[in-house]
Design a protein around this nucleic acid. Structure first.
Length: 273
DNA sequence: ATTCTGTCCTGTAGGC
DNA sequence: TGCCTACAGGACAGAA
């Protein structure tokens, strides 16, 4: 699923393409993705709403409406695809919601695995994910000091902690491996064993990698495509994720795969300790 | 409080 | 070709 850079890419595209537009009609193909309303209520409430602004928090897209908010957590395979007026949007099996805008354009919410969640709320606090979420890694409150304080009592592996959105938001399975590779830290290291210098490296490379990935419009491993159906280009910069058995860039080690908390994890034993 | 495990779904790739 | 298993960008509930 999209991690922070992919959700950011989606939100920026939506901001450009649908902010300021008005919803003419809504069709729900599978109401299971709508978490706090029935399909009928969702359609009724959304129809006639204006989309004021699109922003992001963690891995959630926030659509500010003229009345309330539409919050979308794409999870593993969810995504909003945009089709301009005149392009005929292809309704596929993965299409769960179609939003028609008054200018003739269309927004499709596609989600193969249906882990994604769509909420229609009065206030953002009504979404539990947004109540529990930790700091934005690219914002000012995510600092080396923050990492030092928050890891002090945490014995979980640093990779598990990086992926915990209540600790820091937006880092998922691909970027966690990449961040630790670049930081030269073994993913199994207990968080509270990291020295200040190591935490500073984690801080720096979290920001660098996410920033670069946003600039490249994300990473396309399998399903992921942006709002226009294009792949993200950060895959070309991926050093370890999915590269089990390949020679590491250092020339000495081979990239290994282990499973941590049921998630594949990639690293180079020679580079990371 | 923190940590760990299983679960929610569907599609696809790879082995035999 | 077809069947079977493993695995996939996440978050949560419930248990230890």
């Amino acid at each position: 699923m999209p991690e922070l850079p992919e959700v950011e890419t989606m939100c920026r595209d939506l901001q450009t393409r649908v902010a300021g537009k008005t919803i003419a009609a809504v069709k729900v193909y599978d109401a299971r993705v709508i978490r706090n309303a029935s399909g009928q209520a969702f359609v009724r409430k959304l129809k006639g709403c204006g989309i004021v602004e699109v922003s992001r928090r963690g891995k959630a897209a926030l659509l500010r409406l003229t009345s309330g908010w539409l919050v979308a957590q794409p999870m593993m395979t969810g995504y909003f695809h945009y089709h301009a007026d005149g392009e005929s949007p292809e309704i596929v099996k993965a299409t769960k919601i179609r939003i028609s805008l008054t200018d003739g354009s269309t927004l499709l919410y596609n989600d193969i695995r249906m882990f994604g969640r769509i909420y229609l709320v009065k206030a953002l606090e009504d979404v539990s994910y947004l109540q529990r979420i930790g700091p934005e890694p690219l914002a000012g409150d995510f600092t080396p000091q923050f990492l030092q304080e928050k890891t002090r009592l945490r014995r979980v592996p640093i990779k598990t902690l990086l992926m915990d959105y209540t600790f820091v938001s937006g880092v998922g399975n691909i970027y966690a491996s990449e961040i630790l590779y670049k930081s030269r830290i073994h993913p199994l290291r207990q968080a509270n064993s990291l020295k200040a210098k190591e935490l500073r490296a984690v801080w720096q490379h979290t920001r660098e990698i996410l920033t670069e990935a946003i600039a490249m419009r994300g990473t396309s491993m399998r399903d992921y495509r942006d709002a226009s159906g294009e792949k993200g280009e950060f895959l070309n910069r991926i050093k370890v994720y999915g590269r089990e058995g390949e020679r590491c860039g250092c020339g000495k080690g081979t990239i290994e795969k282990i499973v941590m908390a049921q998630r594949s994890t990639f690293f180079c034993k020679h580079c990371q300790s």
